[in-house]
Amino acid sequence: MAAILARHPDILTRMAGHAALSILIDCPDLPCLVLLRPDLGRATLHRAPPPHDAAIAGRLSAFLSMLHGEEDGDALFFSGRLQISGNTAAVLALRNALDDAELDLTAELSALTRLPLAPLARALGPRLGLSLYRSA
């Protein structure tokens, strides 16, 4: 997470004070929960929910579609595919900051690992039904 934030410093600028809050990502199709502390550049994995300021719950496909700008966060929420609890302002700040950053998860992982992951992502994404990269 620290590497992504270093490449996209505007995320922290947009989140302002909300970056110091802890946001729990709860995907039932992942084996663990993810706790974000954006200001510390920290993402930690947990088996049980740790103390947190806000939480977003939903399937991985919904998170990835939102991250890659294919689906609207409010529409996912209105339709019940995402649920939020706790500090709503922190959730909005994170969502808006990530939307503006136009992240491409595959490109971020490629930069991190120095491996050409795009062909693998293009092959795997449709099979898994997941948005693994940002369309042009």
Partner: peptide, 10 residues
């Protein structure tokens, strides 16, 4: 203005 770029595009 509070919606995402996906909403805006569509």
């Amino acid at each position: 203005r509070q919606r995402s770029r996906a909403y805006v595009t569509e």
